[in-house]
């Protein structure tokens, strides 16, 4: 296992462990420096996933969105989960596409579903929902059945087609 103690001291991380996954929580402004250090000097060469959680009305939560980065050390097979928190209005984080190019579509997905912007991303567009869609559907304040978008299409009748 990588010794994370120097990083924990340097970036004031809180850590926890579940089964064999180590998780660290970092403040949003130190995120970039931490990920850089993890990639360049601790061998976490692969970014598995970026995802987010909306903690609106979550018991005991103090921040609105948690953004989660799952890293993998390709040499040792060790995994590390880095989590950070962002808040309304305009939740935003620096992009990590400069470290892992594979973050491109993952960040677009998080942007599409949660409306978290990634500054410096070269092509931050929606990836799943149509371009004209204007809500971010995985936010907890978006109704699960939508706002009528799914019914807002022309009806084609037999004689018209």
């Amino acid at each position: 296992m990588t010794d994370l103690q120097p990083l924990i001291d340097k970036f004031a991380l809180t850590t926890s462990e579940f089964r064999d996954n180590r998780r660290v929580v970092v403040a949003a402004d130190k995120l970039m420096a931490l990920l850089e250090a993890l990639k360049n000097s601790h061998g976490f060469s692969m970014l598995i996933d970026i995802t987010a959680v909306d903690y609106l009305e979550y018991e005991g939560a103090t921040d609105r969105f948690g953004v989660v980065y799952c890293l993998l050390n390709m040499e040792t097979g060790e995994r590390l989960i880095v989590k950070t928190f962002v808040n309304d209005p305009q939740p935003s984080l620096p992009t990590v596409t400069k470290l892992w190019m594979g973050a491109d579509w993952m960040e677009r997905e998080v942007y599409d579903m949660f409306g978290i912007t990634f500054t410096g991303h070269h092509d931050l567009r929606r990836i799943l929902m149509p371009d004209e869609f204007s809500a971010h559907p995985l936010r907890k304040d978006y109704p699960i059945k939508g706002r009528g978008e799914r019914h807002n299409f022309p009806v084609i009748t037999r004689s018209e087609s």
Partner: peptide, 15 residues
């Protein structure tokens, strides 16, 4: 799939 994304029956929009 009664969600925001799924059309609730194609017969609403095509014959």
């Amino acid at each position: 799939f009664d969600t925001y994304a799924v059309v609730q029956g194609v017969d609403r929009f095509i014959p």
